[in-house]
Design a binder for these strands. Structure first.
Lengths: 110, 110
DNA sequence: TATACTTACTTACATAAAGTAACTTAATTA
DNA sequence: TAATTAAGTTACTTTATGTAAGTAAGTATA
């Protein structure tokens, strides 16, 4: 990969958002704090990748993991302020899709 | 991959934008019509993947390919109206990155 | 005229990322 | 005791991406 002329902050942002599932995970968490298995089933991601992504997003300061020491232990993931700040991005994507994406007739073969 | 409860248009939009390089290619083309080798060098993508992406984006109606029958032939890629409509999305990403992404001290080892 | 160079790709191969399924650990319920 | 749930992890397969070289058509250079 060669050097580019593009703003490195912007590139960094894209390298996060470009990753498969990142957008959907953030979108899902905009609904509020959630458990691992809930995110998994809501967006249809595999546990293997969800685990990986949540770690990445935590490292980026976008997601926070909270352990509630009840019995049984409860773990919840939520957006940080930085993560919540992505809402306008997701809103614009939604807006674009409303205007420009025609509904898919085939909802992905099973 | 399981079924989800998420709006299919939005999912479709994310499946396009989630793909590596899509954002940068659209961003680059927001500067105007450009040739293959120019995009290639500006964003640092490999020719192999650029070729693949441009075909995908053409199929999605986001990019258009124009052949100018000069000699030697000139081929230019540009955004369609649908593609140009992605500008606010990119702007929000830029805005987010300005506020929340701290500059990387290591600009990727060579 | 032969050689090298440019553009817009494609092909072959190597490595990285994602999907699938089974397993783990601890606690809970039937 | 056996089965279930949550939150992962591990091993293995498939897909995506990167790298480098090749191609075809035309251009410039020696």
């Amino acid at each position: 990969m060669a050097d580019t002329n593009i703003c490195p902050k912007f590139e960094k942002a894209l390298s996060i958002l470009n990753k498969r599932w990142t957008g959907l995970i953030v979108f899902q968490l905009l609904n509020g704090s959630q458990r691992f298995c809930n995110i998994e089933s809501e967006i249809g991601i595999s546990g293997r990748v969800l685990s990986e992504r949540l770690k990445d997003l935590e490292k980026e300061g976008i997601v926070q993991r909270k352990v509630y020491d009840e019995t049984p232990v409860r773990i919840e993931y939520s957006l940080t302020e930085k993560g919540t700040a992505l809402e306008p991005v997701l809103n614009e994507i939604q807006n674009w899709s409303d205007h420009w994406v025609e509904p898919q007739e085939e909802p992905v073969a099973k």
